[in-house]
């Protein structure tokens, strides 16, 4: 089966795609900050000795880790407003779904990082009079976060790709715009290929960068 590739229609519609790319980057930045930042808080809570703190954190992690992001986004868009009376729009629903899922996954990464630090480091902080929070912030986290940085960048890459799921509720991002172009020009093959190429072109150098980062971090140890 020979297909006559024709990317001219894609290039003609570049402004449409560009709007989508901007939407992708925007939701990526928001969800990466909320997800990876919030994950740190949940991860610390998960590590807490107090069951009143660690238990809710654990429940949160399990709920959002064991349900599909796609379902979460749809749920926040259709079910959440009816159940709570709080209106959501496509952007908010997608941000909630992707961020909460990312928080759950990255919380486990942070927790593993904190747990990987030798107990003696806690003791050393304690011995010079530091309290729990001071030791955590000054002694444990800087080393723990550095140690899990490769895992976190992996999460970040996942978040970037997950942004396409926002198209299911009509948020304007790359995949959504490609679908629009395809519907108008009857060129789904070129449109969706373009989406794949765009993601690859953005992510490939980033992934290579993370390898360099990993090597640099290993050298520091």
């Amino acid at each position: 089966m020979a297909h006559n590739w024709d990317f001219a229609t894609i290039l003609q519609n570049w402004p449409v795609l560009w709007v989508g790319i901007k939407g992708t980057v925007f939701i990526f930045v928001i969800t990466a900050i909320l997800g990876l930042g919030g994950g740190l808080i949940v991860g610390i809570a998960r590590y807490s000795k107090s069951p009143f703190v660690s238990w809710p954190a654990r429940a949160f992690v399990e709920v959002f880790r064991n349900t599909p992001v796609l379902v979460q986004i749809i749920w926040f868009y259709y079910a959440f407003p009816i159940l709570t009376g709080i209106e959501t729009d496509p952007f908010l629903a997608a941000v909630l779904g992707i961020s909460l899922n990312t928080m759950a996954f990255s919380a486990e990464i942070y927790r593993a990082g904190i747990q990987s630090i030798n107990r003696a480091q806690w003791e050393a902080g304690k011995a010079i009079g530091m309290n729990y929070n001071q030791t955590l912030r000054r002694i444990i986290l800087p080393v723990a976060v550095k140690r899990v940085l490769p895992a976190l960048t992996n999460r970040g890459i996942e978040v970037f790709k997950m942004s396409t799921l926002a198209s299911v509720v009509g948020y304007v991002e790359t995949l959504n715009q490609a679908k629009l172009i395809s519907d108008l020009n009857f060129n789904p093959i070129e449109s969706y290929t373009a989406v794949a190429v765009i993601f690859f072109v953005v992510l490939y150098p980033v992934v290579q960068g993370t390898y360099v980062l990993e090597r640099m971090l290993r050298k520091g140890d």
């Binding site: 010079i128 009079g129 002694i139």
Partner: peptide
């Protein structure tokens, strides 16, 4: 109380078998 113990530990120096320096 935790705060009292932290204040106490600041007044008593301790050195460990495995040094436990802060690596970063």
């Amino acid at each position: 109380r935790e705060a009292e113990l932290c204040a106490l530990r600041a007044r008593i120096g301790m050195v460990f078998q495995h040094f436990n320096l802060f690596p970063h």
